[in-house]
Structure formats: C-alpha cells, structure tokens
Design a protein around this nucleic acid. Structure first.
Lengths: 233, 233
DNA sequence: CGGGACATTGAAACGTCTCAAACGATGTGG
DNA sequence: CCACATCGTTTGAGACGTTTCAATGTCCCG
C-alpha cells in the first residue's frame, strides 16, 4: 500500500480482464498528477462532507478514516448506501447534484479534486481515466455485494457477511475487526432495525462465533462456524 | 437515440458534474471507433452468454433485447443482480473471471468488444475512457437503486419501485410496461418468493392501481396511488 | 391435443418489526 | 467528586407480513 504522503492511491477493479482488479498502484507520474490536482482536507468525526442534492463540485478519495454515504427518505427513514475507507473514491452525482449525503464517522483525511479539473485530466490521459474506470468498477462490485447481503432474510447472516466485508476493507495486523460506526448505522446499511442488529450480534457472541472487546471492536473466535453462516445462503 | 445501424451508443452517467448524465451521444468518430473494434452477435431467448467464473474475454453492449445477470449461491438459490436493456454495458470481471452469469430473456443483439482491444483503445483515447466511466457510474446508480428497493420490507412497495424502474429503462410509445422476465426472475431480483411477487401483483391489480394485458404487459391505471406506494418509504 | 413449465391461490410457521422499558457510557454542572 | 441529563445500546412481549409447503390453475410449445 502506498504511504499516504506519496499522494492518493486507487484500489483497482475490473471491467474486463484487460483491467486487473488486484490492487494496482498508480505509476509515479500518475500519482504526482493526481496529487497536483488534489487538495487535502481534514474532518473531525460526525462532520457532513456534503449533502444530498448539493451542487456536485468535487470528487473525493479517502486517505484515512471511515465515512458513510446515505440518503434520507420521504418517511424520515435513513438508508446508508455505503461505508467508505482508505483509497475509496466517492462523489457520485446526477444532473450535477450529489446523489447521497456523506458524513465522517472517525477523524478523516480526504483528497479533494474539482470535478471540472478531473474531467479535463481524464480527457487528456486515457491511462488515468482507465484507472478511474477500475475504481468505479470496484465501487460497483461493492454495491453488488451489498445487494447480496440485503437479499438474505436472516439477520445473523447479514451481520456475518457485513463483518466479513469489514474485515476485507480494513484489515488489521491483529485478527480483530473494527466497528467504527454505530449500531444504528449498521442497521440502516443492512436494512434491519437497530434492535435486530443488537440481537444478532448478541446471538453471535453467545454462540461463541465472535467475541467483543468493547462495543466497537471484535474478534472472530470460530472461523469455520462463521464461514458456514456466511455461506448459508 | 442513435439508430442501431450507426453503431453502439452509450447511456451516459456522471461521477461529478464535469460528466453530464443526461443521454450523451458519442461523437461520430467515437462511434465509428467503437464499431470498428466491436462485433455483432445475436442470441435467441434463454441463451447463456457466459457463465460466472468463466474467463472474461469480452465486454458487451446491448443493442436490442432484454438480459439478466445473476449469481448462483451455494444453497442453490439464484440471485438476479440486474436486468439489462438497450445501451446497457456488461462484462464485469474479477481476477480475470466474470462475476455473474448472463442469460438472454428475449431475442437479443449484442456488441461484443474484446477486453484487450478495449483496454488499448481506452488508454489511447481519454474521451472514450471517460464515456465508459460515465457508463460505469450509470450502472453504479442502477445497483444503488436496486439497494433502495431491497431495503423495503413490503412486497407491494418493492414491486411498485420495480415497475417504475422498468418504465424508465424501456419506455414505450403507449403507456404500457413490458415484463419480459418470468415471475421467478422478478422474485430473485427483488429478494422475494415467487408467491409474494404473484400476490403483490394481484393486490395491485385488485386495488385498480395497475391493469394487466396478458402476463407480460401492464398499464398503470392510478398514477397518484402508484406514486404514493413508491414514495411510502 | 398433451405435457411440462410457469403462475396463482390457500393455510400454518417462522422471524423481524414495533412499542416499551431498563441498562450503560459519556459529559456537564453543582 | 457526585448527581444528573443525554445518547446509544440491550433486552422483552405482541403484532404483522413474508416464507414455506401444498394444491390448483393457466399458458405455451412440441
């Protein structure tokens, strides 16, 4: 992984085999090019980066920290569409307006690129544009994994898949998993009530599949049982 | 809309305001460029285009017809991840292998582009790559709308949103909506049982919100009531 | 015209949602 | 330093809606 000082990096994805999906580092030139058009911004926890419907002026890449993207529905309900971590890009727009609201969960450092600047850079540099295409494909796969999770009807199964996703997205040196977001955010992401999330986590803990170390950190105790739950659907 | 004889066209999407999301036609040069690297293929209904896990050699653009992309789960269940119509692109891969299986629903005409060829063309032509980026963003928004649908707990609400989506994706001169796919496919897309789909459609018909003309075509009778159901969440 | 897949309808069981209350951690003011 | 208010989390009991299982009905293609 690129050190953050070296500038923004991209997780690569694929839309066809010509575009590899394992982590693919930008060339030094591209990195410096992105760095040259990006500015760095820092945010404390719980800060709104932008609101749904606002004029979409920038695209962002997460350098460090955890973020949520959500939509508020007519009924007052809130749907969390994605959690974003280091190297993830966001700023999806429609008709010149942001599609989601975005709010920090932890302390966050962002690369911010003005959309007009980026568009020009992409037109001039096919390789760079291809990298961003890979990035978009990565986000697309993330949304589809989310779909798979939502398709399950059982709460514990959804939670298990969610934990597995977190483990992949933000791997740690020890075998632990961070849960920086609130139970409410998890519920809104998984399409469950907060109570169901709490009950499902309790059940996983009671059956010795996982063990909590505080409310926002856990460890998988029984990997085979865990995998079995994940693959149950 | 571009006539199909003129070559493939792209529905544009946006990843920031610099990339407009209203339908944006490719320049004549780009269209001929795509046409020059694409081959046309025709498929009868029910034909597998490629299978999940197969070597991903090509990217496709739908010229005409309806297609479904799905995954078969360990339990034997099938999840339909997307329905694809004219101008939609598909061929998402991971580690050089297709992520989904893709099967035709109706008779279909496709543009097929070898991935290696496409990758080279994208590197040489930033504008073209930007167009494909817009395309990917469009697919991403589609996946997120799918997420919104799956987040609802009520069957009729999901069906209503689904019908609205179909109306947008394949507009007809008359006010009717085509349902080319089977009830089973709809169920697998909406995360419901076939029975629930059937019951929900019956309910919508019984309450005079919609009217069927055969099993695969319908009309919205009461638009206000329909919108109300859609916006209930 | 028949066979088989697709579609509809019915009755019981399961699991989540909702409503409600208790619990715990956190931060502030007395 | 403690009392207190607040927010997030956990736990409990009943209602609702979908799933499941089963049977019937319908369409389409050979």
């Amino acid at each position: 992984m690129i050190t953050s000082d070296a500038g923004p990096s991209l997780r690569a994805a694929s839309f066809g085999p010509g575009l590899p999906d394992v982590v693919r580092l930008l060339s030094s030139d591209q990195r410096t090019q992105i760095a040259s058009i990006a500015t760095v911004a820092e945010f404390p926890p719980g800060r709104i980066v932008y609101r749904e419907g606002a004029n979409a002026q920038s695209v962002f890449i997460v350098a460090e920290g955890a973020i949520k993207a959500f939509r508020d529905l007519p009924s007052g309900r809130r749907r969390v569409m994605a959690f974003l971590f280091a190297d993830d890009a966001f700023g999806l727009a429609h008709t010149g307006h942001y599609v989601h609201s975005v709010q920090t969960i932890t302390r966050v450092r962002l690369y911010r690129i003005r959309a007009t600047t980026l568009a020009a850079a992409l037109r001039d540099n096919g390789e760079l544009a291809s990298q961003f295409l890979c990035k978009a494909a990565h986000e697309l796969r993330g949304a589809m994994r989310h779909n798979l999770i939502l398709a399950r009807r059982d709460a514990v199964g959804r939670l298990a898949m969610f934990l597995l996703m977190l483990e992949h997205n933000a791997p740690r040196h020890d075998a632990r998993i961070d849960l920086p977001m609130s139970r409410s955010d998890i519920a809104n992401y998984l399409g469950l009530s907060q109570e169901s999330v709490s009950r499902a986590l309790s059940r996983l803990e009671r059956t010795s599949v996982i063990a909590f170390h505080g409310r926002h950190e856990l460890r998988i105790l029984d990997r085979p049982k865990f995998e079995k739950i994940v693959n149950a659907l």
